[in-house]
């Protein structure tokens, strides 16, 4: 997506229920996401944050209700795993994703400050740099709705601020985000979805 363009993708969840291991753990979720929105999902361990995110991302079939997206190819999911290959270098991982999403690597690499390690295999990176590589896929994908699980786990203060700035830029372009986290996240105007255990 070119810089000038604005996203216009919306996502709605109607009476959504998700199950883990055959047991319904979250139900009755109603959520409408417009361009520029951010929703932070909070709740104790085991409340179903990750499972709910996978349902929003279309990777998990809901146990009830539905998720409606105006454009099915505009969601990008970044779980706690970074989805990179340990034996490939940072650049090789980015180039592979770029081929899948039909995008370019340079902007995403710069946005997450990955240039110093671009030629190193992922397995040699610190936890923080590995997370940054995982998050780079959000920027790289060029997709409108970011669905992220614990984005700032393992990041230092400066990288957390950098992610918050990227999130703000993404929302300013009409992008939206659904983020599950335990940590404080500076996202002005974000709504909070509290999950009960």
């Amino acid at each position: 997506m070119p810089d000038a363009a604005r996203y216009t993708v919306t996502l709605a969840a109607c009476d959504l229920a998700v199950a883990r291991g055959g047991r319904v753990i979250v139900d009755g979720v109603n959520l409408a996401i417009e361009p520029g929105d951010a929703v932070v999902i909070r709740g104790p361990n085991g409340a179903g944050k990750t499972t709910l995110l996978r349902a929003f991302a279309g990777l998990l079939t809901p146990a009830g209700g539905e998720v409606v997206v105006s454009d099915d190819r505009q969601r990008v999911f970044c779980g706690v795993l970074n989805a990179g290959k340990p034996t490939l270098t940072v650049n090789e991982n980015l180039r592979f994703w770029a081929a899948l999403y039909g995008a370019r690597v340079a902007a995403a690499r710069a946005a997450l400050g990955l240039e110093p390690v671009e030629h190193r295999p992922m397995r040699e990176l610190s936890t923080g740099y590995q997370r940054r590589l995982g998050l780079a896929r959000l920027v790289l994908s060029g997709r409108a709705i970011w669905i992220v699980d614990e984005p700032t786990a393992g990041l230092d203060a400066a990288s957390t601020t950098a992610f918050e700035r990227l999130l703000a830029e993404h929302r300013a372009r009409g992008g939206a985000a659904i983020i599950a986290t335990h940590e404080p996240l500076d996202a002005p105007g974000a709504r909070t979805l509290e999950l009960q255990p």
Partner: peptide, 12 residues
């Protein structure tokens, strides 16, 4: 599946 790449393959 273990490193999350399967999700990426599925969504693209």
């Amino acid at each position: 599946r273990e490193d999350g790449s399967l999700d990426v393959l599925a969504e693209t």
